[in-house]
């Protein structure tokens, strides 16, 4: 990725770009999984690699291919992730129960995850990302595997979470971010194309974000 300068405030940021444009690369840099060869990523003015665990303490991340332990129940899995997030045992248990209720998995909280549907696994993934009540929540393709009803429910959940934190949401599904994103970020050729509100992007010319998307990438010969 080259020549990218972005600043995030509280609110939902939608990352929108075709495959291979660099969404996941940017997310991996923001989550310290890979490191930029040039440039800096700052949190409150400090380089995130310097902040190290202090930065990751405010980070919640749901990766695109969310892996889980097949023989664990959601409670056991969240218990493990809570330990990694430095949350003490009793708080972890309370928080896990609370989050599992939020993602409607209370009834299966002690069942092994090997028999869960894709949507249920994805909801466990959202719960683990929220365990530490993160200031930055990064969700990579979070609605993959969710049915339409779950997607609506998820959108509402994200909208509610974004009030006092930064939510960065990467997706192929334009409608997922149209109604909840405060800002939409688009890439082209590994460079930043635009970062603006959905309203500003639509302007008077387009009826919805999907048309904006098609127009921009059709022009670029990508879509």
């Amino acid at each position: 990725m080259e020549n990218i300068s972005l600043e995030f405030q509280n609110g939902v940021y939608g990352l929108l770009a075709p495959n291979g444009a660099g969404k996941t690369t940017l997310i991996k840099m923001l989550t310290t999984l890979i490191f930029p060869t040039k440039g800096q990523i700052l949190y409150d003015g400090v380089e995130i690699s310097q902040l190290d665990e202090a930065y990751r303490d405010v980070l919640g991340y749901l990766p695109q291919d969310f892996g889980y332990y097949r023989n664990y129940s959601p409670m056991q899995f969240l218990g493990y992730i809570a330990a990694l997030k430095g949350i003490d045992g009793s708080t972890a248990k309370r928080k896990a129960l609370q989050l599992l209720e939020l993602v409607a998995l209370t009834e299966v909280k002690d069942k092994k995850m090997r028999k869960f549907s894709g949507g249920m696994i994805q909801r466990v993934g959202i719960a683990q990302a929220m365990l530490n009540d993160p200031k930055i929540l990064i969700l990579d393709e979070p609605t993959a595997g969710l049915d339409p009803k779950e997607r609506v429910r998820f959108r509402n959940l994200i909208a509610g979470l974004a009030e006092d934190r930064t939510v960065i949401l990467s997706t192929h599904i334009v409608s997922d971010i149209e109604s909840i994103a405060h800002q939409v970020i688009m890439f082209k050729d590994h460079t930043l194309l635009c970062c603006d509100s959905p309203e500003a992007l639509r302007g008077d010319r387009f009826a919805n974000l999907e048309e904006v998307f098609m127009h921009i990438y059709d022009e670029a010969g990508i879509a």
């Binding site: 991996k28 310290t32 190290d52 665990e53 892996g67 992730i81 997030k85 430095g86």
Partner: peptide, 20 residues
């Protein structure tokens, strides 16, 4: 274990991170 269970991204982005 994490590579095998594809949980590396979740585990290494927690507060403990790679110190796990």
């Amino acid at each position: 274990y994490e590579n095998s269970a594809t949980t590396e991204y979740v585990v290494f982005t927690t507060k403990t991170g790679r110190k796990v």
